[in-house]
Design a protein around this nucleic acid. Sequence first.
DNA 1: CTTAATGTATTATTTACAATAATACAATAC
DNA 2: GTATTGTATTATTGTAAATAATACATTAAG
Lengths: 132, 132
Amino acid sequence: MFVLDYRSKLPIYEQLQTQMLKLIVGGVLKENDQLPAVRTLAMELGVNPNTVQKAYAECERVGMIVSVTGKGSFVSNPAVSMQLYMKEKFKELKALIQESIEYGLDPNIIINAVTAWCEKGEWDYDPTQSSH
Amino acid sequence: MFVLDYRSKLPIYEQLQTQMLKLIVGGVLKENDQLPAVRTLAMELGVNPNTVQKAYAECERVGMIVSVTGKGSFVSNPAVSMQLYMKEKFKELKALIQESIEYGLDPNIIINAVTAWCEKGEWDYDPTQSSH
DNA sequence: CTTAATGTATTATTTACAATAATACAATAC
DNA sequence: GTATTGTATTATTGTAAATAATACATTAAG
C-alpha cells in the first residue's frame, strides 16, 4: 500500500504522510478504515517502528487519521483530507504562477497551457515550443 | 544580493543557484556582469568558500555563468537562463496540475483560478472558498 | 618575473537530522 | 491476564551538507 523511495531527499516519514493523504483523497482508504499497526507497517516496509509512528502522529495532528492506544489507527473523515489537499495544491499553484509571472513568463501563455492541459487533455502541449 | 534561509531544507548551494537564476532572469544580473569572487561572496554570506564554489560550479554546468580561473565568474547569455527557467516552471506547473486532477480536483476550477490570477490579476481569488 | 587575485581540487572534520535500536509505559480487546 | 495496539524515552548509527585547511592553476598588474 505504501511505497518508499530511499533515493529521495524527502524523509521516509514525510513520504508516508504524503502517500497517506493521497490514499485517502483518492478513495483507496475510506472513513474508519483501520490502518496497519505501527509495528506491522514498519515490518512490511522494512523500516523502524519509530519512523512509522512519526508519520502516523503527523497525520493525526492534521486530522487525517485518529489513533487510539490499544485499538489502532483509523481514517477520519476524508473531507478533512480533501480540504487539506486542495488548500495545499492551490497554494502551491498560486505561488508557482505568481513567481513565474514575476520573473517574466507571459500570463497568456500560462493560461493557454493550463487550458490545453485541463480542458482539452492535451498533456503533450508544450508552451516552450514555438510551434504552438 | 543573495539572501540565505538557514531554516530551509534546501542546501545553501541550491539556494544560491536558484537565486542566481532569478537574478539573471529578472534582469538584475546582465550579460557579462562579473559575479563576486568565490571567497568574497563566502565572506559576505558567512559561509564556507567551498559552498559558494559548489553553487558556482553548478550554475556553470547548466550554462548560466562562465568561470575562468584568474579572471572571475561572469553571467552568460541570459536567454539561456530564461529558457532554463521557463522549462523548469512549466514542468513544475504541469506536474502539479496533473497530480491535482488525478486526485480529484475539478479541472474547471483550476482553469477558473488560473484565469482569475493571470488574466484579471485577482490574486485574492481563492478557489477553496465556496463563494466563487 | 613577481605578486596578488582569481577559480579549482583534495582531504579530513564537524554538524544536523533522519533513521535505527532497545525498551518501557498505557490503553484496549478478548 | 494476556496480547495487541499506540505512545514515549534514551542512546546510537548513518548520511549528506557544511566547514576547515591547504594546495594548485591561471590571469592581470606592476
